[in-house]
């Protein structure tokens, strides 16, 4: 019995770790860190239920679908998982999204009544670009902040970048995230490759850096607007749920006996 419980905890914890890698495409922050995921249940057959909730009933259906699908993918990649079933709650098209993701439908088919254009992959790419640019801005500004001149930043190699240490916790947190996207997109692979290029892979000329940064700031301002509204709205929604339904707040680890390492709640 104890061994079984222990196994359940381990598996639940693995699920949370995978979920932590899924980001809200618009905010470029982890869905677990944002407090979207409320509940994970793992059964003996390797079926996983993931209950999540977004800040509002109206949150964009395509982003919701994307997150649900990313959760399914991330959790399904665990070797012992038979089925991963994300379940979106309290959303205008929750039913369609849950069904669509469960049955592996395309985005366009699942949300047929809204006739969305474009594919999920196009959407993913659009948001990967935004994430790339947002993380990149953080790194460039941080380098400027510790005294690097623009020409040095523009030609900085990946191995030099790896050696830079940042004192600010936020920058230190973003550094591996930026690097990870560089590698994932193939924009830099070798130690001598440039660290700062455009999303199209073009080098940034030193006299263009200022105007390039201006554009990146625009990207960030838009994303931050959503990010702060989302966090605020989610916090309000949680308070209301607690008010409506007094009782113990659900533990992030669902039915398991101990709290796993997963981050919980909104900041």
């Amino acid at each position: 019995m104890n061994a079984l419980l222990h196994e359940c905890d381990r598996r639940t914890s693995e699920v949370w770790q995978r979920l932590a890698l899924v980001t809200d495409p618009e905010l470029d922050e982890s869905v677990t860190e944002l407090g979207f995921v409320e509940h994970v249940t793992v059964d003996d057959d390797g079926d996983v239920d993931i209950v999540f909730r977004l800040p509002t009933f109206w949150c964009s259906a395509n982003f919701a679908f994307l997150m649900a699908d990313d959760m399914r993918r991330a959790v399904s990649s665990l070797p012992w998982v038979r089925k991963a079933r994300p379940q979106l709650r309290d959303h205008m098209v929750a039913e369609q999204i849950n069904r669509g993701v469960r049955e592996g439908m395309s985005f366009a088919d699942a949300l047929k009544e809204f006739a969305p254009g474009g594919s999920l992959d196009e959407l993913r790419d659009k948001f990967r670009r935004k994430a790339f640019e947002r993380r990149q801005e953080v790194m460039i500004l941080a380098l400027r902040g510790i005294g690097y001149e623009d020409p040095a930043i523009c030609r900085m190699s990946l191995c030099s970048f790896d050696e830079v240490e940042f004192a600010s916790p936020d920058v230190a947190r973003q550094k591996p995230r930026y690097r990870e996207l560089l590698i994932e997109t193939g924009l830099a692979c070798l130690p001598e490759d440039r660290t700062f290029v455009t999303y199209e892979g073009a080098p940034i000329k030193r006299h263009e850096l200022a105007s390039y940064l201006q554009r990146l700031r625009g990207v960030r301002i838009n994303m931050e607007f959503n990010s702060s509204l989302c966090r605020g709205l989610l916090a309000v929604r949680r308070r209301e749920l607690v008010d409506d339904n007094p009782g113990p707040t659900p533990s992030p680890c669902g039915g398991c006996s101990s709290r796993c390492a997963a981050p919980s709640g909104s900041p």
Binding site: G232, L233, E240
Partner: peptide, 17 residues
Amino acid sequence: IHGKQFIDCFYAYHSSL
């Protein structure tokens, strides 16, 4: 339900900012 969710969403804006 949309009427309820709409004003709820406004209220959430109010509460959070």
